[in-house]
Design a protein around this nucleic acid. Structure first.
Length: 585
DNA sequence: CTGGGGAGGGGGCCC
DNA sequence: AGGGCCCCCTCCCCA
């Protein structure tokens, strides 16, 4: 007995889930567009994807091989078995691009389909493309550029994939009859590889909960009470981080799934549509799905939507809208979260994703980063870049896909203007600066600084606790005189003076001085809140927040105002309160 | 409407 | 690398 439409219906459901972002557990970044999808589906479609999603939940695709528009078609194809073509997309060029992408992604059926189509049209497959380096090598190259300060040889945890050669694909799986508008793969149940034996099972069980999260672990551990969602978070993953994953992957899939329950914003937003003013994708919005409005916990919903707000606040608004089409975020979004509070939450992923890094910053030359260096607020704020202390960003890390203007040398050293093809090389170069020039310059009283750093300098003057007890803190920063207990900390600190953010966020391009900060930041992109309150179920991105939050339940108010005796659960609120005492009002 | 408190969230930084 | 803390921003609630 066999249900005739089973496979079709299943695929239909999966595609609907995709368009809604439901149970999506992987994000694919193509240039500056984000696509959500299901690992199982991707893995079942391509052995290349299979190798990628095994370890990573955030995948950067080589923009030379695939662009957002093409990838959208690819994804549609994967989920529907159809190539829906518009007049534009049915052009030969489109098929060539599709073929390139399909070859790159090892989507053999699609590649065959494109070949067939091109052949039928009398066109030729793109001559050189299939011989370009295979996906694996390209990915390595790609991620190497993306991941700063990851050791060379990072991506080696990728399982070897079959050769990247572009073998001719059997056309047997293709339907002979191809219409110009729609092309089908013969059987929706037929997959390029046999890796999907568990697909259905996994899907029905809610995604990839059982999948090893070998990527950069952003989920951390979760308190035992985290419930079903948290159960899926594997506690072991900390040790699993691979160097590569820092650049390509981000989170564990279970957490993503989880977010669909507890963090509807991300789940929904990334999948739901936004205004469609992207030139590439404006013709349709197939996923204008009225997915269930995200459930919101008290306060959290509104809050969640305001997530990127801070960066938006007081900051310029970009000209560019970053529409989200078919689950795709296209381009940076301006700082104003248009949809904030609108309930649907459909906007904020896009907002957050791109507010973090103002496109303006990105567009401009490397120097502007020296302005933004001080505080993350500044950079994300774009216009407010100059504030934020003395941390002049003298070195700029360029993330591929965000700033192509430097050609291959995306990593530019600000003081000397030299470009480097990799962050490693830039970092190595920077070291020579710090050792050879920095201190010399300092001795000479001419530190490399931006013109406007005088004010900022004051902010980081050796104030506060940094100077006390110099006996126990023998390691002193030569720039700001802060002292530290150990040389490693000093080194880390010194980089805040001289190194600009070697750790970029793969989603928004924002850069960080410390990997941990970037990792934490990524959690916010992905809506990972591994720390759940046992009392109320509220979830947090950080343990510390949970600790703070627990005082709400316990009633503990450890922070007391010495002036009025007022007690507070959080120190910051005491501080805020003290300002009220001291401020002349 | 306003001010104050409570609280969620983000980044920087030190250990 | 991860934890913890500090600081900041912001919003919501309430008096």
């Amino acid at each position: 007995m066999e249900l005739p439409n089973h496979a079709k219906q299943l695929l239909l459901q999966l595609n609907q889930q995709r368009t809604k972002g439901f149970l999506c557990d992987v994000i694919i970044v193509v240039e500056n567009a984000l696509f959500r999808a299901h690992k199982n589906i991707l893995a079942a479609s391509s052995i290349y994807f299979k190798s990628l999603v095994l370890h990573d939940n955030l995948i950067n695709l080589d923009t030379e091989m695939v662009n957002p528009s093409v990838f959208r078609q690819v994804l549609d194809f994967i989920y529907t078995g159809k190539l829906l073509s518009t007049s534009d997309q049915s052009s030969e060029h489109n098929f060539s691009a599709l073929l390139t992408a399909a070859s790159y992604l090892q989507l053999h059926d699609l590649a065959a389909l494109c070949r067939k189509k091109l052949k039928r049209n009398g066109g030729k497959p793109l001559p050189g493309k299939p011989s370009t380096p295979g996906p694996l090598s390209r990915l390595r190259l790609n991620s190497q550029r993306l991941s700063s300060s990851t050791p060379a040889g990072n991506n080696n945890h990728y399982p070897p994939t079959p050769s990247d050669t572009d073998q001719p694909q059997p056309d047997e799986g293709l339907r002979d009859k191809l219409s110009d508008d729609e092309m089908y793969v013969g059987s929706s149940g037929k997959n390029g590889n046999g890796a999907n034996g568990s697909t259905n099972g996994n899907i029905s069980s809610g995604g990839s909960a059982g999948e090893p999260d070998l990527g950069l672990d952003l989920s951390k551990k979760s308190p035992p009470s985290a419930g079903t969602a948290t159960d899926a978070l594997s506690p072991h993953s900390n040790s699993q981080e691979s160097p590569q994953s820092a650049s390509v992957s981000t989170t564990n899939s279970a957490s993503l799934d989880d977010s669909s329950n507890t963090l509807p914003g991300v789940e929904t937003c990334i999948s739901e549509n936004m205004d469609l003013n992207s030139s590439k994708t404006s013709e349709e919005a197939p996923n204008q799905l009225d997915g269930p409005p995200p459930q919101k916990k008290p306060r959290q919903g509104a809050r969640k939507n305001e997530w990127p707000k801070r960066e938006a606040s007081g900051l310029k608004s970009e000209d560019h809208d970053r529409p989200l089409v078919n689950g795709v975020i296209v381009g940076p979004k301006d700082g104003r979260s248009t949809g904030i509070g609108g309930g649907g939450g459909g906007n904020f992923i896009s907002d957050q994703s791109f507010q973090c890094k103002d496109e303006e910053d990105i567009r401009e030359n490397g120097r502007d980063h020296s302005d933004e260096s001080g505080q993350s607020d500044g950079d994300s704020g774009g216009g407010g870049g100059t504030r934020g202390g003395n941390h002049s960003a003298n070195y700029v890390y360029r993330q591929e896909g965000f700033e192509p203007a430097f050609g291959d040398n995306l990593y530019v050293c600000i003081p000397c203007g030299k470009g480097f093809p990799s962050s490693e090389q830039l970092n190595a170069h920077v070291e020579t600066h710090t050792e050879d020039e920095l201190y010399i310059k300092e001795e000479g009283g001419t530190l490399v600084k931006e013109e406007d750093e005088e004010e900022a300098e004051d902010l980081s003057a050796p104030v506060g606790p940094s100077n006390f007890g110099s006996e126990t803190r023998p390691f002193k920063c030569t720039v700001c005189s802060k002292s530290y207990k150990d040389p490693a900390t000093l080194r880390q600190h010194e980089k805040s003076h001289w190194l600009t953010r070697p750790f970029p966020c793969n989603i928004c391009g924002k850069m960080f001085t410390q990997r941990g900060t970037m990792t934490r930041h990524m959690r916010s992109h992905l809506g990972l809140k591994p720390f759940a309150c046992e009392e109320c179920g509220m979830r947090f991105t950080r343990q510390y927040r949970l600790t703070e939050h627990m005082r709400v339940h316990s009633g503990e108010k450890p922070y007391e105002c010495q002036l009025c005796g007022g007690k507070f659960t959080q120190q910051r609120n005491l501080i805020s309160h003290l300002r009220m005492h001291t401020s002349p009002s």
